[in-house]
Simulated scan of single mutants.
Amino acid sequence: MSAGPTLLDVTTMRSRLDRLRRAADAAGVTAVIVSPGSDLRYLVGVGGSSFERLTALVVPTDASATPVFVSPALEYAGLGHVPLGDLGVEVRTWVDGEDPYARALGGAPAGLVAVSDMTPALHLLRLRDAGATEQALAGPILRELRMRKDPAELEQLRLAGEAIDRVHARVGEWLRPGRTEAEVGADIAAAIVEEGHAAADFVIVGSGPNGASPHHELSGRVIEAGDVVVVDIGGPLPSGYNSDSTRTYAVGSPREADVESVYAALRRAQQAAVDAVRPGVTCQDVDRAARAVLASAGLAEHFIHRTGHGIGLDVHEEPYIVEGNDLPLEAGMTFSIEPGVYLSGRWGARIEDIVAVTDDGVARLNNRPHELVVL
């Protein structure tokens, strides 16, 4: 558990807690229980993950009721500077041998309780046994807060995009024949940190036939002249906000005869999806824009995933740019646009930018060239 670098001040935290209460009330729940993870970091700036000891923020819907932060005493020792008291949050610490679940629910109203989506079953079931017998997922409530980024969040995502663009600009330093994907990936991971990230969260280097596997990551395959290589990379800034960008490279002249025509169609598809983004357009409309271009090129069956995913404190979060999602876009929403073509056993390609919905259109947060980069 930690309270690392954060964009939050007391005013922002209070506003987010108030918005959470209103959204929970509209959803018909009596309280929201938030365990460690990105939701807790979003609300009060406390990062980290859940462990076997319960840490949780309990926010009753009733504005007259006091929110409670339950923490093991040994963990709370490192969180004393989080301004919970200024927020009117009661802190209840506990030590090994005590029952933290009863402590979390003590004074909480009966009825339907929403629990953050990534709460481990270990804690979820014990909360139920302690009296939270009616449970629902808090994700639909919390997404209403987190989907629309405020100016400070947008600035962090812009900085994350610039940082990962700088890494892509350097890929030619490492990607060459005779090196393995794993060797190239290690160099890229180091550069992600050098360029301002707190860590390299993921590094995909899919060369030749491995590029046809969208989540291939790394292997001992030796990169060969003529390979087309998919490089998908990202990670969090110290603030917790993430980058995610994919470019496709060729190591010398591509040996596959259809690379030029297929890649040209992919570029058109990615541009069509970006051009479709504006307030009021639905998520599935953006997905359809990319898919229609690839279908017209006879490549529909080779585009095997959604067009995009939201991004912020999580690499994958709402909104999802996929068929069936009729959510209208609003200013402040941020997500990837990343169509791909995957020719099994041969090669693959993907182009990915993070974009932000503006008041009247769209802004790209990644700005590296989109053409196939021939090294």
Rank of each mutant, 00 (worst) to 15 (best):
R346M: 03
P214G: 07
R143D: 13
A363K: 11
P369T: 07
L40Q: 07
T119A: 13
E98P: 00
I192M: 14
R179N: 00
A169R: 13
E162I: 15
G196K: 15
E153C: 05
V203N: 09
P339S: 12
D129N: 06
T246K: 06
E338R: 13
P238F: 11
I337E: 08
G348W: 01
E260G: 01
V355P: 05
E173Q: 06
H168D: 12
G280C: 01
D244K: 11
V259Y: 00
V281K: 07
V91D: 00
D360I: 03
G45N: 03
L218E: 09
A363H: 05
R21G: 03
D129T: 11
T246E: 10
F202I: 12
V10A: 02
A300E: 15
V362M: 14
Q135L: 05
G280A: 02
G185E: 10
A114V: 10
G48M: 09
M13P: 02
T180C: 03
V355A: 06
W347A: 02
D285F: 12
E217M: 14
V286L: 12
E224V: 00
R53D: 12
A104K: 00
G312V: 07
P100C: 06
D96S: 12
S15M: 02
A24D: 10
G298H: 12
E260R: 03
A290H: 04
E318W: 10
E301F: 10
A65Q: 08
G220A: 09
V259H: 00
V113E: 08
L218G: 01
S344T: 03
A264P: 01
E217T: 13
A132C: 07
A3W: 04
